[in-house]
Amino acid sequence: MTLTQQIITIALCTAGTVLTRALPFLVFTPGKAVPPFVRHLGKALPVAVFGMLVVYCLKDVSVMTGNHGLPELFALDVTIGLHLWRRQMLLSIAAGTLCYMILVQFVF
């Protein structure tokens, strides 16, 4: 690939990204009323997407082989348990991550 071709490739990746981020704002401009169905989606989608992102983060965990996803399971329990108890975002994240690091480095 020449330098120009490389620049075009990177520009196209940028264009694809910007387009997916901007499209809803381009279609539903502030002056126009947002259709009720889209409004419904705007409210319904976020929590579904957060669920999807959690699964995305864990997509390469194999339950059948290796350590059977046990470090992930333990660390998730710590994160969720601590968060339900204290509701301190940073604390839950730090403790869960530390727990996971200790498990994969020293235990499994």
Binding site: V54, C57, I80, I93, Y100, M101, V104
Partner: peptide, 16 residues
């Protein structure tokens, strides 16, 4: 090793 779990934990907490 294992630091990548910070992203998983972030999304789990936000989901919760």
């Amino acid at each position: 090793q294992g630091l990548e779990f910070v992203m998983t934990a972030l999304f789990v907490v936000i989901f919760l």
